[in-house]
Design a protein around this nucleic acid. Structure first.
Lengths: 344, 344
DNA sequence: TCGCTCATCTAGAACGTTCTAGTCACGAAG
DNA sequence: CTTCGTGACTAGAACGTTCTAGATGAGCGA
């Protein structure tokens, strides 16, 4: 077997007609059998199926979707470099197939721009497009939304006609602050996300939360960003300043990883001296850099909401914004503030 | 604009026939214009193109590929959780489009098995399938290869009829050993990959290389694996043993990251006390956990070779195994062995 | 015997493209 | 005046499915 010479090439793959000829029935009947819809006797059903299996028949999804009035296809763009997008895509597969839809995924990367990825999806005739963490400007979103129903994930939409699913960023950061305050921390710092999507909301959430606890005077926001490098750089700034914080709320897990890395390098004990909390609960958080405390966006829930929202748009529902509640995942990078607890 | 009510839905997207009617010409002529092939006057060309743009025409890739004798489509499966796969996919996009091919990507994840991903590609009628780091057993590979020309990336193929592109694992590890030896290290250890693909070759490469340098007696192999966790666990074992090595060759970057992480935690200075080198040159290597020294598999080169190999299979070429030369990327986690250099 | 229902099966048109095999007009050559 | 060549364009089939509208025939009651 598997002789190169006898391998079926793409062109020679058997079609419905081939199976029908072999079985001595019409293509329509084979189609009925393969789809498992009523209209064929059990006898022919098993016979045709056996023949199809034997010939190695695989249906041509292209022809099928071409013929069907609705393609039942959801297009998804995602960033190859973002671990959280990977988590989302995985759950989108599950959520879509549970509703009888297929997924067409199209990757965004430094050498493959988002508009290229979207164009590919349009050519596949997906019925609705789901963009993960899109970086498109509002006017680009608007023109895209003119061509296909659009739903943004992990980003807010200010564009009319575009749905979105994202977590409550301000609320999530507030959870982080509440957690640290409950542990006795008083001097908090937020390493922010710069101009990354959601960074504004998280900054705002931090400011509100510390104010609510009456800790506004001791709180600081330092310039950070969405990468490990940004987190490390921010820590350098922090360690040079006269009063060091005991609790750090990082923009996201990658940023927190950078924070943790430099703290460990500088021989700062986490969480004994400083507590650090991230945001996303991506795979980074459960790596070996300690089990990171973080705010979870729950990829599975977000994916479900995204598919629901997308199908709702298809059904003619009005575009809407779904805000998911993030929740705290306390692991080992946060602990009681020094000077409090049993000791104090 | 962008009124929800007026947005075009999937079903209403304009077709060639719509454009043709609007322009008062035949669909064949519009097709000629849209493809940019000879057969239309410049006047009609510009006129039709303007009308098409105005109507927001986007060609239906499904119908096109259905009609064309060859679909010019390359299927790719990849693991959503592996950073290196992301790098590969990015470059596969570029390499494929440079040769006039499209890519259909299908993800593998804990909840989406590899055979499901492959089945989806077969239904898309891709002409050849490229599997990144496949975990399929030989007999499964054989039956798949019976349905579609197959090329494995980052894994060796022992199956007849299946092409493969991978780096010289043994040679790569030898490079790492040579590098450490040149820096004066004598006591080397290899944190291996367990039963991960390629682990055998890397173990063998390590054994050969230390033997070649006459360091076999001082060298050790400890059980590791492909994840950060495996690396960390291995370091615990190492630090407990009487003689600690000064140079560590990790199975891959993730494993090395785990090694580095625990070393830093245990207050071991890298690279002053211990040098660590990874394998892959994935994005992990250039993170903030220091700039990691590593063996690069060069994703771009690998992707080019994969597409070349895939198209060669399509042209009826015999299946072949392409072995790429890895190369050393010395960054900041390797340095002179203590006791040598200026001090000694 | 006739019609009726019902399950089973089939012919043929669609879907939106590309491709093959033309047609048509027009000017140049004979 | 015919013939030929050429550039611009078109009719219609094809790709592999699904879907609509029927055909066929068995069973059955009147």
């Amino acid at each position: 077997m598997t002789q190169p010479g006898t391998r079926r090439t793409g062109a020679a793959r058997p079609t419905l007609a081939d199976v029908a000829r072999e079985a001595g029935v019409s293509t329509a009947l084979v189609s009925i059998v393969m789809r498992g819809v009523p209209g064929a006797s059990d006898a022919t059903r098993t016979r045709v199926r056996a023949i199809a299996d034997d010939m190695g028949y695989v249906r041509d999804e292209r022809a099928r979707k071409l013929r069907q009035s609705s393609s039942r296809l959801i297009g998804v763009t995602f960033d190859l470099q973002q671990a959280f997008h990977g988590d989302l895509v995985e759950h989108l597969y599950g959520a879509a197939s549970a509703r009888g839809y297929d997924l067409a995924i199209s990757a965004v990367a430094p050498s493959r721009r988002e508009d290229v990825a979207i164009q590919a999806l349009l050519r596949e005739r997906c019925e609705v497009a789901v963009l993960l963490g899109s970086a498109l400007a509002d006017d680009e979103l608007a023109t895209t939304a003119d061509r296909v129903p659009l739903l943004l994930v992990a980003r807010r939409s200010e564009v009319a006609g575009v749905s979105s699913v994202h977590s409550d960023d301000a609320g999530g950061v507030a959870l982080a602050v509440d957690h640290l305050v409950a542990l006795g921390h008083r001097r908090l710092v937020h390493v922010d996300g710069g101009d990354a999507p959601g960074a504004d909301d998280r900054r705002r959430g931090f400011a509100l939360a510390v104010e609510r606890h009456g800790l506004g005077a001791d709180a600081r926001v330092v310039a950070g960003g969405p990468t490990e490098h940004d987190g490390s750089r921010a820590v350098e700034v922090l360690l040079d300043s006269p009063t060091t914080p005991t609790g750090v709320v990082a923009f996201n897990d990658r940023c927190a990883a950078g924070v943790l890395d430099l703290l460990v390098r500088r021989r700062v004990d986490v969480p004994a001296e400083v507590s650090v909390i991230g945001y996303d609960d991506s795979r980074l958080a459960v790596g070996p850099h300690a089990q990171m405390s973080t705010i979870s966006q729950n990829a599975a829930e977000m994916a479900e909401a995204a598919i629901d929202g997308a199908l709702d748009l298809l059904d003619g529902g009005a575009p809407r914004e779904v805000v998911l509640a993030p929740h705290l995942v306390a692991r080992s990078t946060t602990g009681p503030a020094s000077g409090t607890g049993p000791v104090g």
